[in-house]
Design a protein around this nucleic acid. Sequence first.
DNA 1: CGACGGGACGC
DNA 2: CGACGGGACGC
Length: 231
Amino acid sequence: DEAGSCASGGGFRPGVDNLDEPPNSRIFLVISKYTSESVLRERFSPFGEIQDIWVVRDRHTKESKGIAFVKFARSSQACRAMEEMHGQCLTPSDTKPIKVFIAQSRSSGSHRDVEDEELTRIFVMIPKSYTEEDLREKFKVFGDIEYCSIIKNKVTGESKGLGYVRYLKPSQAAQAIENCDRSHGVVQYFNVASAIYAKYKLHGFQYPPGNRIGVSFIDDGSNATDRFGNL
DNA sequence: CGACGGGACGC
DNA sequence: CGACGGGACGC
């Protein structure tokens, strides 16, 4: 996408720039050094359309570093793969269970694990006439809602036309983002993990602007609560 | 601990 | 010609 190619400082490179589009559609795996691409394909293709599999290897010795990336077509597929496969063994010879996380976008520059806290909550723009009950009704078809709220003017109590919906699982929030009907009420909706990305995209700016987002939001020691408020 | 390759436009 | 913006919770 444009954001990615701008960040990489040059021409459009499909194989690289699609890696984080849509957001949260790539998983990062910690696996055995003896696990091959073919085993990954076999175990992860049930979760959806795989666009890329990559076992990271030493440039010279070609020995696996025991980590890998699998890119899916959809965020919900990546989330489900994480939910189902984290903590599992891929083969009978594995001595340790694998770890599966949603990969950080390449442009973020951060290597911290993406928390479920960020992946289960979405930010929605809705008609001001919506009550919290309306919001819940509208979004419960996508999964189990833990909590939802509407942002209101504290003085008048009137809705600002904005809200949050928290699901139990990341894959449910992803499905809400993917399937929510844009034409009937909900105007925009972001996974909170990608809110900054979406916001910049909406304004037509490249993301990140230089490295400032990465520095000020991610590498300054702040956590999700610092950045997004109490969750 | 455990984080980023390969390949290359498009009429 | 006639598209479009706005925008963040609260124990």
